[in-house]
Design a protein around this nucleic acid. Sequence first.
DNA 1: CGCATATACTGGTCTTGTCATATATGCTCA
DNA 2: TGAGCATATATGACAAGACCAGTATATGCG
Lengths: 203, 203
Amino acid sequence: MSLDHAILGFLSEKPITGYDLKTRCFDETASHFWTADQAQVYRTLERLENRKFVRPRLERQHSRPDRKVYSATPAGISELHRWITSGGPAPPLRDPFLIRLRFAEGVSDDELLGLLGERRQEMQARLESLRTQTARPLPADAQLSAILERLTLDAAIAHARSSIDWLDDCTETLLSRREPDSFSRSGDSRPLPPLGEKGGQER
Amino acid sequence: MSLDHAILGFLSEKPITGYDLKTRCFDETASHFWTADQAQVYRTLERLENRKFVRPRLERQHSRPDRKVYSATPAGISELHRWITSGGPAPPLRDPFLIRLRFAEGVSDDELLGLLGERRQEMQARLESLRTQTARPLPADAQLSAILERLTLDAAIAHARSSIDWLDDCTETLLSRREPDSFSRSGDSRPLPPLGEKGGQER
DNA sequence: CGCATATACTGGTCTTGTCATATATGCTCA
DNA sequence: TGAGCATATATGACAAGACCAGTATATGCG
């Protein structure tokens, strides 16, 4: 149901084609907080059209195939507003990587450290991409729409950073098990510091 | 496909019934990183049984209905290991709340602040529940399985905390727009500090 | 004895997302 | 001139998760 409203959101800002919703919106400007594939976008547009929430206008092109440009209808904008203000629960955490980690007891340390490293590299790449999109600070008198967009980027940045910090904690924990410091070698039951409580570092 | 392997993971540790997989595992010990409903668990068990990855044993009970206790087969354990070491990409960020925020331009400040507050309360409750599960530190000589489980809890904690920090940043940003400090009132274009870069605070 | 609850399992359906495939127009370049 | 790519729209099939409903056995309580 959320894709419906994401599309209504974009169309409430300006008319867009199905092709541009996919390539410009879900592959680019909004990819840090929602994605959709081509089949899904066209099917959702059809459904929204059937419910009179959007209206297409055929646009003839001479150097390109003809295209349908969609706009949100007043009913669509009203439905978007209703949905936005209705709120809803946060989705449960759901990442196959956590299943892998949880049941990794039979996996060698090197393999597990490799998986942590791979995932870290992926999140680092995401963070760097997000960083380039936020390199230019907003002026103090920025429009609300620019501020809201920036806030979604900040959410993705915060998510990537906390992921990286957590992955580093995991790596340190596993390495410290493999090579305990000399104090631990003395055999006492000194508890490990709680993970996840460390302050974030710049990366 | 991930539920298959989560179930194989639990069954590789000890035999479990379908009912306990749902109530003890996906509703309790693993609910911070994966959830599944009852119908889904039973259907997945059937599929795993068909693929010879698990094997049920009927257990007669006299004070309760009879039950099936499932175990992972050697083939199942091998498949679990294969899947764990195969890795895979991080799922894209996907939270309807971010769509709501992005397109909230037509929503009143009070409504938007209310949504931020609701979500913050929900994440705070999650954090507190996770905190009670990690209140007791692991001993330095803890088993690897306990350490790995603790790491998944840390992931959920990190996620909740970074969410709360981000939500607080959003709230501050919106409030500062509503009541700019006197310096901004002078009309200069001083840029806002980048959001998401602030250190996390204890909550 | 009826009701609620726990334990235990199964069937049906819907939604959402993914993967594959198809057709069409037009441009670029070796 | 044809392959590859961009633009543009669309359909079929399937998987995973969610939701709803159903059946059965057993216990506890008013």
